[in-house]
């Protein structure tokens, strides 16, 4: 099957083809191998991470930052963080990121209808109260970071989010402001091939 570039949001598992040459593992520097956490038993590294390994010093910091934001103990639920990531990816139209994090949201919260609504109506999705507050905040912080203030804060408080949960949400959205700007600009999502 020929590869096809994907432009619409989907739950399908996608591939990603870079526009920029990835690092070749056989000629990678020791610093790149360290940042990639390459070991003899782990040489399966995605094209995306191999592109980022062009800047090994940055990648070595970014990987633990990303993991802590998405998976740290306590605070905002896993599903809440995935929904924040998805909101950013919808605004920034990172189709690949959206597919991954929509699927993770469904795996966690078992609510595929939330994703159906978001995929159908985008930033205007009509969701149950708590999901609405989290999604709207992700959309607003991504699209208008200079407009976030008292209104957004009270919306999150009204649905019961604690300070720590709000802190986690801010970072889940912000790290996708980062990830979308890499993944959507340095390559494209593909199906098949």
């Amino acid at each position: 099957m020929a590869k096809e570039v994907v432009h619409e949001f989907t739950l399908d598992t996608l591939g990603w083809d870079p526009y920029v040459t990835p690092v070749d593992l056989d000629s990678a520097t020791p610093q790149q191998l360290e940042a990639l956490k390459v070991t003899p038993s782990n040489r399966k590294i995605s094209a995306y991470v191999l592109v980022l390994a062009q800047e090994a010093e940055a990648l070595a910091e970014r990987t633990p930052l990303f993991n802590d934001i998405m998976y740290s103990e306590g605070g905002l639920s896993r599903g809440g963080r995935e929904l924040g990531a998805l909101a950013a990816s919808i605004v920034n139209r990172c189709v690949y990121c959206a597919s991954v994090h929509a699927n993770r949201f469904i795996a966690n919260d078992k609510l595929p209808e939330i994703i159906e609504e978001i995929y159908a109506r985008g930033v205007k999705a009509d969701l149950p109260e708590k999901y609405q507050a989290i999604f709207d905040f992700g959309v607003e912080l991504t699209a208008n970071p200079d407009k976030v203030g008292v209104y957004q804060f009270y919306h999150l408080r009204e649905v019961g989010l604690s300070d720590l949960e709000i802190l986690d949400l801010i970072h889940a959205v912000a790290i996708f402001g980062w990830a979308n700007r890499l993944m959507h600009t340095l390559g494209e999502p593909v199906r098949g091939g």
Binding site: T142, P145, D146, V148, F153, D163, I166, V173
Partner: peptide, 12 residues
């Protein structure tokens, strides 16, 4: 990323 984090933390 830093711009978004700063905007969110300013709100808090």
């Amino acid at each position: 990323y830093q711009i978004l984090v700063t905007a969110g933390l300013r709100m808090l």
